[in-house]
Amino acid sequence: MYNTNRMKLDFVMFVDDSRIDNIIHRRIVNRAGFAKKVATFEEPGLALTFLQNTLREEAQFPDLIFLDLDMPLMNGFVFLDQYAGMVGDIPKQSKVVILTSSDENNEMKRAHQHSQVQAFVRKPLDKKSLIRLMYQLAWSAPPVIQPAQQN
């Protein structure tokens, strides 16, 4: 069995317009000890601005971004396009996980076309799906997630 402690992240971000979902997700990540720091953004535009401003400080950049797809002001696909615009500068270890109540295959395929998208998790996020995600990330990538590298 995987040592889930090895998977503890420094910084996890949620981009989701639902305040209730954000409360739940923040608490589940905290209780599971999945990450040291959690930030939630109800407005995707603000999240993008934050990410843009954080690009120069790699250690401050989120290791994992949980992204909702169905959001009124800017949906997850538009977010991904704009995020991809920053790709050249994004720290390599940073990943995106789609977190949505939709389980449409088309949306899953569309999201996976973005190279940062590592997984597709169905809401509600719970301890089980976090454990599963740990497995999945361990399968698809080498352990990413040690404290930020210092050169």
Binding site: S18, S101, P124, D126
Partner: peptide, 17 residues
Amino acid sequence: AHDLRGPLGHISAFTDF
């Protein structure tokens, strides 16, 4: 079913909390 799933998930999560 899709629209019911969200609120039910919320009830379940907050009960756990």
